[in-house]
């Protein structure tokens, strides 16, 4: 049944998700075009336009990724609300499946959709970097310097520098950060879905209730995040007082691990909240 439920969840989410990915792709394309309009010679005549083009392209890309990420989260929240707590909920809750299976299908599909959006953002980031790199190569070639020939050396230097500075290999850091992002993504989705459910306690203003619940939960999360930063601050102050040179990763890793554990805890709490609301407190109008 989980597979069937996920199939219909995906069918409901795929079109709006594709639209969001399309918008992201379009903003990336436009950003690339703007990057390519920057004058490679960067001479005095074109500098004003070049700087404006650069700023515009960065802004466009920034708003593109923020808009699409928030948009995807909204799409997930709206679908969850519609199929769980409005008239469509009558069909959802009379299917011959356990509530936990229903919730698992909705959560897994939502997480996969959001991860797909994040992968899209990462892919566009590589495209933008590629566009900038190509363009910089053009500029340097104009100046008689061929960057692409030195790329291997540059990357090796970057990797060594990263290990020296941060105390972890570049690959290790990327792997750790990728795990962190996936867990954070699951936690963010669970928080949104949990807040939609909590909003149902305000029976007369369910949507406003969900928004208030979200801000309340986020405020608590921000406070906990601040507490999680304390080991990093304390380590930095100690290192400064003792004039120690400590690799950056050693300083930030306690905070990252605490944040990771907190994200897992939030996911579990929100899952319990959702299950409780969908069974014991279910009250379809």
């Amino acid at each position: 049944m989980l597979g069937k439920l996920m199939k219909y969840e995906w069918r409901g989410l795929r079109l709006p998700l594709l639209i969001m990915l399309g918008i992201l792709g379009a903003s990336t394309l436009l950003t690339c075009l703007l990057i390519f309009t920057i004058n490679p010679r960067f001479d005095n005549v074109a500098t004003g336009f070049s700087v404006m083009g650069l700023v515009l392209s960065i802004l466009l890309y920034y708003f593109g990724i923020i808009g699409c990420s928030v948009g995807t989260m909204l799409i997930i929240a709206i679908r969850f609300y519609k199929t769980t707590y409005t008239d469509e909920g009558y069909l959802t809750h009379t299917l011959p499946v356990e509530t936990k299976t229903l919730l698992a299908a909705k959560t897994i599909t939502a997480v996969l959709c959001y991860l797909l959006m994040l992968l899209g953002v990462v892919a566009t980031l590589f495209i933008i970097i590629g566009a900038i790199y190509t363009h910089v190569c053009n500029i340097s070639a104009y100046e008689g310097v061929y960057f692409d020939q030195q790329l291997g050396e540059m990357l090796a230097e970057l990797s060594d520098g990263f290990r020296r500075e941060y105390g972890i290999s570049f690959g290790g850091f990327v792997a750790f950060y990728a795990i962190f992002m996936v867990v954070a993504c699951i936690s963010a989705i669970m928080t949104v879905l949990g807040c939609v459910s909590l909003g149902q306690l305000y029976t007369k203003h369910r949507i406003i209730g969900a928004i208030i619940a979200y801000f309340a939960v986020m405020s608590v999360q921000q406070f906990i995040s601040y507490l999680a930063m304390l080991p990093t601050y304390s380590r930095m102050l100690r290192a400064e007082a003792m004039a120690e040179t400590i690799p950056m990763f050693e300083i930030i890793s306690p905070t990252m691990i605490l944040s990771l554990l907190w994200a897992v805890a939030v996911s579990v709490i929100m899952h319990i909240v959702n299950l409780h609301m969908m069974t014991k407190r279910l009250n379809l109008e």
Binding site: Y90, L95, L282
Partner: peptide, 29 residues
């Protein structure tokens, strides 16, 4: 009866079962 609302007290049995996945299998609502 359909499990769309939690009772304050008392119980509903369908074929001797509380409202749930099994009872929804036999009810067409």
């Amino acid at each position: 009866i359909n499990g769309l609302l939690a009772p304050t007290s008392g119980a509903v049995y369908i074929n001797g079962l509380f409202p749930g996945a099994e009872s929804k299998r036999v009810i067409s609502y």
